[in-house]
Design a protein around this nucleic acid. Structure first.
Length: 315
RNA sequence: UGGUGGGUAGU
């Protein structure tokens, strides 16, 4: 059973649901009945590919077959619904879970808080935070990071910073993900100076900013029209061991385009290709957008012919 | 053996 479950979970994580079902079939032929772990892996796979109906169908099928759902399976479903924006259904699942006497752990609360944040209901998200504490649970760094990010996305930096303080008061240190969530909030708000100093604070605290952290500080400088600092940081980040990736180039190309420096943007595109990076659809859309604004549709055609980039529908 | 957090374009 464990062997089959391991295989099924592997296929589901890769998004190869067809293969997962082949293994399930094989498993049945061996006379082994899928258990709650098998179903969780499959349900998770369907959730991650955005097929909630399939996930729910399996869930119902499992119950019909007399397999009892547990907390992990409920959390999987709750998270799947939250990510599709179906927060009301996620809350119903939460009720069903409690009705069955299944305990709601930190991971389940985190999934719900994430969903509430995505729905823009920060008030209720905070209530759930209080609720989990009252239930005797200890919010962890994921809980707080979700809330920091949630407040940032609502442009409520005050709320985000409050969450950071609550986190620290609980003796939880910010890690690089939490820092980046905050830095993102600051950078998008045009508060790059603070974002940049937070990057230094992070280094002092012993956390290595990673590619995402640098992306946002570089992007912040670009949004401020300060390409000098953006490029300077782009060079500096190598010293932190961060290898420039497609996203970093995309951010810089976008910055150049926004400043009307489309020729330099093209040069940067060539540079990234020379360095062995593969531009993605965002690179192309960014360039097309920039060139169209400059009424350079000829250049767009040239980029397509010379570099062979294919615009997608959005472009 | 299964579940939760951060980054770029357009929309």
């Amino acid at each position: 059973l464990v062997t089959f479950n391991t295989l099924i979970s592997g296929h589901c994580k890769k998004g190869h649901m067809g293969d997962a079902y082949k293994v399930l079939d094989l498993m049945g032929k061996q006379g082994i009945r899928p258990d709650v772990v098998t179903y969780s892996a499959l349900v998770n796979g369907h959730c991650k590919e955005g097929r909630l109906e399939e996930a729910c169908k399996l869930f119902e099928e499992m119950k019909r077959r007399g397999v009892a759902p547990d907390g992990v399976l409920f959390t999987t479903l709750i998270d799947g619904h939250c990510k599709e924006g179906a927060i009301e259904d996620a809350l119903k699942l939460h009720d069903e879970m409690r009705g069955r006497g299944i305990k709601v752990d930190v991971v389940a609360y985190n999934a719900l808080i994430y969903g509430l944040c995505r729905a823009g209901n920060l008030k209720k998200a905070k209530k759930f935070l209080d609720g989990m504490v009252k239930a005797g649970l200890v919010p962890d760094k994921v809980t707080y990071t979700i809330l920091i990010d949630g407040f940032c996305k609502e442009w409520n930096l005050h709320g985000a910073l409050e969450m950071r303080n609550r986190m620290i008061r609980r003796g939880i240190n910010l890690d690089s993900v939490a820092y980046t969530a905050l830095i993102t909030g600051l950078a998008r708000r045009g508060r790059v100076v603070e974002a940049h100093s937070m990057l230094h604070e992070m280094l002092k605290a012993g956390f290595m900013p990673d590619d995402a952290t640098y992306t946002m500080v570089i992007d912040g400088h670009c949004r401020n029209g300060d390409l000098q600092r953006a490029f300077k940081l782009f060079k500096e980040m190598r010293h932190s061991g961060v290898v420039p990736g497609v996203i970093h180039y995309n951010v810089l190309i976008n910055g150049l385009c926004k400043e009307g420096q489309t020729r330099k943007a093209n040069m940067l595109l060539k540079t990234m290709i020379d360095r062995g990076l593969v531009p993605d659809d965002i690179t192309y859309n960014t360039l097309i957008h920039g060139h169209c604004k400059e009424k350079n549709s000829e250049v767009v055609r040239k980029l397509r012919d010379e570099i062979g980039l294919v615009p997608d529908l959005a472009a």
